[in-house]
Computed example of a mutant assay.
Amino acid sequence: MTTKKTPAWLTVSADRVTVTLSKPTELNSVKVDTVSLRSPTVRDIRAAQQGAGDDDEQRELNLFASLAEVSAKDLEGLALKDYTRLQTAYFRLVQDDDV
């Protein structure tokens, strides 16, 4: 069995992940170098789906924005490398502990 090493830019706790960005960016009109995502609820997932219809990318943006408590437009301004880090962090947050 292989264990995935946690990247240096990622901090994981039971109900939250924090991503260190590759470069500071502005979220909620504040320059930040980290983004935290809280653990999602079923309500979060349903709300993200309702706001996006059949658009998978928009659904993910809506969900991440809700979990980070920022606007989807702010997340759209992230460097692709940092958005990919958010995706990795999210999947690490929701994976089963046995994996």
Results as ranks from 00 to 15, higher is better:
Met1Ile: 11
Thr2Asn: 13
Thr3Trp: 10
Thr3His: 11
Thr3Gln: 12
Lys4Phe: 14
Lys5Tyr: 10
Lys5His: 12
Thr6Gly: 00
Pro7Glu: 10
Ala8Gly: 07
Trp9Ile: 06
Leu10Val: 01
Thr11Leu: 08
Ser13Tyr: 01
Arg16Lys: 15
Arg16Met: 09
Val17Cys: 02
Thr18Asn: 04
Val19Glu: 01
Val19Gly: 00
Val19Tyr: 00
Val19Gln: 01
Thr20Glu: 10
Thr20Lys: 10
Thr20Gln: 09
Leu21Asn: 02
Leu21Cys: 05
Ser22Tyr: 03
Ser22Phe: 00
Pro24Cys: 10
Leu27Val: 15
Asn28Lys: 10
Val30His: 10
Val30Gly: 05
Val30Thr: 15
Lys31Ser: 15
Lys31Phe: 15
Lys31Pro: 12
Asp33Ile: 07
Asp33Thr: 13
Thr34Trp: 04
Leu37Trp: 00
Ser39His: 13
Pro40Trp: 05
Thr41Gly: 09
Val42Asp: 09
Val42Thr: 13
Arg43Leu: 14
Arg43Thr: 13
Asp44Cys: 07
Ile45Thr: 09
Gln49Trp: 07
Gly51Pro: 04
Gly51His: 09
Ala52Thr: 04
Asp54His: 12
Asp56Trp: 09
Glu60Tyr: 08
Leu61Ala: 06
Leu61Asp: 03
Asn62Ile: 01
Leu63Asp: 02
Leu63Gly: 01
Phe64Cys: 00
Phe64Lys: 01
Ala65Thr: 02
Ala65Trp: 00
Ser66Gly: 14
Ser66His: 07
Leu67Val: 03
Ala68Asp: 02
Glu69Trp: 04
Glu69Cys: 06
Glu69Gln: 11
Val70Asn: 01
Val70Phe: 05
Ser71Cys: 06
Ala72Phe: 02
Leu78Thr: 00
Leu80Thr: 13
Arg85Thr: 03
Gln87Val: 13
Thr88Ala: 11
Thr88His: 13
Ala89His: 01
Leu93Phe: 00
Gln95Phe: 05
Gln95Ser: 12
Gln95Glu: 14
Asp97Cys: 03
Asp97Ile: 06
Asp97Phe: 07
Asp98Trp: 11
Asp98Glu: 15
Asp98Val: 14
Val99Pro: 03
